[in-house]
Simulated assay, not measured.
Amino acid sequence: MDGWDAEFVAPEFVGYSEPEEIQQRMMSALPDGIDDMPGGFPYDFTMPTAIEKSELIQFHLVRTLMLMFPQYAWDTWLDLHAVAAGIERRPAGYASGEITITGDTGTIIPSGSIFCTEATDGSPALEYATDESVVIPEGKMVNVAITAVEAGKESNTKADTIKFSLQNIKGVSSVRNTEAISGGTDVESDADLRERIKEKYSQEGASYIGNDADYIRWAKEVVGVGDCIVVPTWNGPGTVKLVLVDSNGTPANRKLIEAVYDHIVSPKDRSQRLLPTGTAELTIVPASIKKVSYTCTGLVYDSTIDISEIITQFKVLVNREYSDAKNTGTLVYNQIRPLITDIPGVTDFDTFLINGSEENIVLEREEYPATENVDFS
């Protein structure tokens, strides 16, 4: 365990600071002859001060010490550590994709036209704006790229869910998305940002010549990228392939792939180019997904947690293991199984299976694991 994984331990000097201990020291310092009995004025007067001092030491001072180190900082304070490391927290990403519009020949669909999903009792309609102006051709059907109006994971939607136009565009008879709209991601979590800060510090002094670590870092600098697999010399000398998943663990969509390519190659401004001159060709593709399901029976847990929360926390923990699995080519059963009891409130279980067995999951070179079903009982 390195310093990044160690649990924070409060320094010794914050000890002996319970209110009763502080007050006892205060009472002991009173001049001789002063009433020091419980209920007396000095006793009642010193206790509020002792309580405040105890809180200052045990809570505020300890939290201040934690904020000084990126290993233990959070929220805005972790952002400041990121700035010091030369990076910044990635904002939420916008989902994107394509819709097919059917209507009268010659109908103009202006850029920024809003199309949406159907609202339900539980959620409002999701809105998407067209990226460019298009005209419906003689075939009475046209495809147009769209981007979600609101950023975030919630802006992702399945195929055949975008069915309505928010504005009344005369000549449009129907709209649909034949494929899922993807790429919407939440603001980078503290855990992910902390990992990138760690990577940045560990790579200080690196040559930036375009080794595997460089390509992974460059890819992750783009909003929405979750992980990157590097395949060197895949098509001969001087060629590199990057295999991407987004922050949701799903294959990167076209827009995200283009954003990563532009960031690394910078075809419009060579002064911003990261790609080494000796690399003749950079290819970026979405990952192939290896679906993984988990089954756990006989769970023993206390009243502080329920099954749904256990499943939610397990998904978060197992997603962090996928990056290591990608590097080694194997999702190791004995590394995933202990995650169950790492969840606060869970004390034991009977059986744990990955894809129905107690075996490791082997990944092909361009495969990335993704959680499919989690069945806990």
Rank of each mutant, 00 (worst) to 15 (best):
I289V: 11
A287D: 00
E127G: 05
G93R: 05
N360A: 10
I310M: 03
D32F: 13
C296V: 13
G39W: 10
I87M: 00
R270P: 13
T157D: 08
D2C: 12
A84V: 14
A85R: 05
Y322V: 12
E12G: 05
Q203L: 13
L353N: 06
F59T: 15
L274D: 07
E12C: 00
Y215R: 00
F164D: 06
R176E: 11
D269K: 14
I136N: 02
A95G: 14
D36Q: 10
G40Y: 09
E309W: 03
D36M: 12
Y201K: 07
I169E: 04
P344R: 08
L166H: 12
R337M: 09
Y72S: 03
F115L: 11
H60Y: 13
M1Q: 14
L353E: 07
I229W: 03
F352A: 03
D306Y: 09
V285N: 08
V222T: 10
I109V: 04
A84W: 05
A119D: 10
T102C: 08
S308M: 12
S303N: 15
N211H: 02
A287W: 00
T102P: 07
V362R: 04
A6N: 04
Y94G: 00
G33L: 05
V374L: 07
Q272R: 09
S247E: 11
L244G: 00
E359Q: 14
E88W: 01
G183F: 02
T233M: 14
L274Y: 08
S202I: 09
I108R: 11
D190V: 09
T107R: 11
T157A: 12
I101L: 03
L363N: 01
T147V: 09
I257D: 00
I57H: 05
E321M: 02
P137D: 04
T107I: 10
G86H: 02
G278Q: 09
N253I: 02
L80T: 10
N248R: 14
